[in-house]
């Protein structure tokens, strides 16, 4: 139930994000979801890709700072209040969210969550019958 996310450190320079996208594209690696967290000097690209290990290798050999991070992917209905009910569960279990990003399409939405307590988060969500997506399924989107 755990998904590997790649995190890439990027200086705030024109074209830097494109350098990553181009490298992954050339290597036949697909991006399913990503977000960029930034401050004035630098940003961190977080992405779910079709082959995280290969992505890491390719980027590292091109001098990028890359790490793999365990996150989870929650699948929820694309309806009002759906996110809130999931977050309620986490709040009750005292699980913090370090960051999250989401993409919705049609009737469903996928939410990538980096929780403070990965295992606790998985258990809490499954106990409440929320749908988590496995890595392999995610990459098929």
């Amino acid at each position: 139930m755990i998904v590997k996310q790649i995190s890439v450190f990027l200086e705030n320079k024109t074209g830097r994000l494109n350098d990553v996208a181009a490298l992954l594209g050339k290597s036949g690696i697909n991006m399913t979801a990503f977000s960029v967290a930034d401050n004035s000097d630098f940003g961190i690209l977080r992405a779910i890709v079709s082959d995280p290990e290969k992505a890491q290798e390719v980027l590292k050999s091109n001098k990028f700072a890359v790490s793999l991070t365990d996150v989870i992917c929650l699948h929820s209905p694309n309806t009002p209040g759906a996110l809130s009910s999931a977050l309620d569960i986490l709040a009750k279990e005292n699980i913090y969210i370090e960051y999250m990003y989401a993409f919705a399409e049609g009737v469903g939405a996928n939410i990538i969550i980096k929780p403070s307590n990965l295992q606790g988060c998985v258990e809490a969500l499954q106990k409440n019958k929320l749908e988590l997506i496995a890595a392999n399924d995610l990459y098929r989107f």
């Binding site: 995190s7 450190f9 930034d38 401050n39 961190i44 700072a65």
Partner: peptide
């Protein structure tokens, strides 16, 4: 430059 092992996926850690 931060050493490879210390690059984080969290902005607050980098800050």
């Amino acid at each position: 430059e931060v050493k490879e092992a210390y690059y984080s996926d969290e902005i607050s850690k980098m800050l």
